[in-house]
């Protein structure tokens, strides 16, 4: 009996190993939070961008600018330095920040350096190909009043199969003319990631 049991165990093990299940794909809501690896993900990017820009827009620099200049400020979102040990899609984060600014309706956002190159190429093309009525002129671009720069840092504390990942995002808004820093924002995210020792 014991032998048969061992044999059955061995065969069952083989069967388990060799018969892995197929792939299953299902659509989920983009707002839904799904943490798989514990790494920085789309939810972190969106939440940090929304919260930080919400904070930036509630600070005095905005009302001061509108009061002094009589118009909404134009902001350019510059480089986000990834200082973590993760491949973070900083482009997505920059996109989330720009979206939060634009949707606030109180700040105008200027295209980034790379985007501007593309727009300029299009404008150059228009000079040769577009009708006079629709052709856009050179030298009429909106100059940014402020530039937003940032860094993403990460500290990891790990022991065995348990890990705490601590992300810190620092954003600084500086006046393009004077270099004066008018707003400094910081957002922290702490994640506890535990891995099981065994699975069936």
């Amino acid at each position: 009996m014991r032998t048969l049991l061992i044999l059955a165990l061995a065969l069952a093990s083989f069967a388990l190993i060799s018969c892995s299940g197929g792939k299953k794909v299902s659509r989920i809501d983009v707002e839904e939070t799904v943490d798989l690896s514990g790494n920085w993900n789309d939810t972190d990017s969106r939440l940090v961008a929304d919260e930080m820009i919400g904070d930036a827009l509630s600070k005095p620099w905005l009302t001061n600018f509108v009061r002094d200049a009589g118009k909404d400020p134009a902001v350019i979102v510059g480089a986000m330095r990834n200082l973590s040990d993760e491949h973070i899609a900083t482009g997505t984060f920059v996109g989330d920040i720009e979206r939060a600014f634009v949707n606030s309706g109180t700040v105008r956002v200027v295209a980034s350096k790379d985007e501007r190159e593309g727009v300029r190429e299009e404008r150059e093309d228009q000079q040769a190909n577009a009708s006079l009525e629709t052709m856009k002129e050179f030298g009429m671009e909106l100059g940014a009043d402020y530039m937003l720069l940032g860094e993403i840092n990460k500290i990891v504390d790990q022991e065995g199969k348990e890990k705490v990942a601590y992300y810190q995002v620092d954003l600084t808004l500086s006046h393009v003319q004077t270099n004066e820093k008018v707003w400094i924002g910081q957002k922290k995210i702490k994640k506890y990631i535990a891995r099981k020792n065994y699975k069936p």
Binding site: L9, L16, I17, Y198, P200
Partner: peptide, 22 residues
């Protein structure tokens, strides 16, 4: 490799009756 830090009990059991290759 990261995923396999969590050991599979069935594979561990199978390795004791067969070979480390499983």
């Amino acid at each position: 490799a990261e995923e396999r830090l969590t050991k599979s009990l069935s594979r561990e059991a199978a390795s004791l009756t067969t070979s480390d290759r499983v």
